[in-house]
């Protein structure tokens, strides 16, 4: 297994915690609040960590705001103690996406995904000429346009986000129909009620040797370690499971995958923390408060690369093989 480091320019801090993303948080939290006020007898209670399986009683509390979130003391993953049915989650997500105005240009991020596939194909010396995109085409509406312009050498299949009863029947059907060489899952693992089921469906409906590209938020990221539930990235409805590297590795192996590559290519930890410490009057954490208050852009860049090299940034990528 390799652990590459993805190095890129540091994002502008305004792109990280903008007015718009604040509005997004409010909308998602309002949706969650509405949900909580309704009957939630159909919610599923997680009695164990969804990543490594350690019983919930051994976990420690991560957050009680809106929902109970636990932090696994074995693998460090963060997870909601109770999760709504998948169909409810999908409907809320679709409502949110449909209500959202076109956002910032994400071409930068999209090309990173496309280049990840291309370099993987080269390094594995294996043609990945057909790729199935799982729901990202709905989550990021501009994605398909970028794919059509910048990735003409592959045939792409898109599975849009539709309300699912938790069995991922449409994914099963699409996998069997398209028989892709690669499956791209950039925005599902942390939002899905049952990530183990999602992994299982992909593996059981793909031929051996299928490459699965997974991206998700990462609980090992410095952002989560320092800010905990105060992290601006922590939006409960979008982060029902925040995997640690160890946690996702355990789950993937348990699901029968071979892990080819692990990385944490997140670019935002340093700028998020800088913004937090420069704006929060009462934030006084030994070492870090001073570090971020005095940090210039170069120091932040160096820190972000160190976090990536140490597998400690707030986004994880896994390359799996069925």
């Amino acid at each position: 297994m390799q652990t590459p480091v993805f190095i890129d320019q540091l994002p502008d801090v305004s792109a990280v915690v903008s007015h718009k993303s604040g509005q997004y948080r409010h909308q998602r939290n309002k949706a969650l609040l509405d949900l909580l006020l309704k009957d939630h007898s159909d919610w599923q209670t997680r009695s164990a960590c969804p990543a490594c399986g350690q019983e919930r009683g051994k976990s420690r509390s991560f957050s009680h705001t809106f929902m109970d979130f636990q932090r696994c003391s074995n693998c460090n993953s963060i997870y909601a103690a109770d999760v709504p049915p998948q169909v409810v989650l999908d409907n809320l997500r679709l409502e949110q996406i449909n209500a959202t105005e076109p956002g910032k240009d994400r071409e930068f991020e999209f090309i990173s995904l496309l280049n990840w596939i291309s370099l993987t194909e080269a390094r594995l010396e294996r043609s990945l000429d057909s790729v199935l995109d799982v729901r990202f085409c709905t989550q990021a509406p501009d994605w398909q346009d970028t794919v059509q312009r910048q990735s003409r050498n592959r045939s792409w299949h898109f599975l849009p986000l539709t309300p699912d009863d938790g069995t991922f029947a449409s994914l099963k059907a699409k996998l069997r129909e398209t028989n892709p060489k690669a499956v791209l899952v950039p925005a599902e693992m942390d939002r899905t009620a049952d990530p183990a089921m999602l992994l299982q469906v992909i593996r059981e409906n793909s031929p051996a040797g299928t490459i699965v590209f997974v991206t998700s938020s990462c609980a090992d990221g410095l952002e989560y370690e320092i800010l905990g539930a105060d992290s601006p990235s922590f939006i409960p409805l979008d982060r029902l499971t925040i995997f640690s590297i160890c946690g996702f590795k355990t789950l993937a192996e348990k699901s029968g995958y071979e892990i080819l590559e692990t990385s944490t290519p997140g670019r935002f930890d340093a700028v998020i923390l800088e913004r937090y410490f420069k704006s929060a009057d009462n934030a006084d954490i030994p070492f870090w408060s001073g570090f971020f208050r005095e940090a210039d852009k170069n120091r932040l860049h160096d820190l972000q690369i160190l976090l990536q090299r140490s597998l400690k940034s707030g986004v994880l990528r896994f390359l799996l093989e069925t």
Binding site: Q2, P4, V5, F6, I7, F108, I111, S112
Partner: peptide, 24 residues
Amino acid sequence: LTMALNRPDRDGNPSPNPESQEIR
């Protein structure tokens, strides 16, 4: 080992300093 594929702009021209992948 550092590898980077160009990051084309909307006109298809390479933008400077593309994201690179570093393997040790």
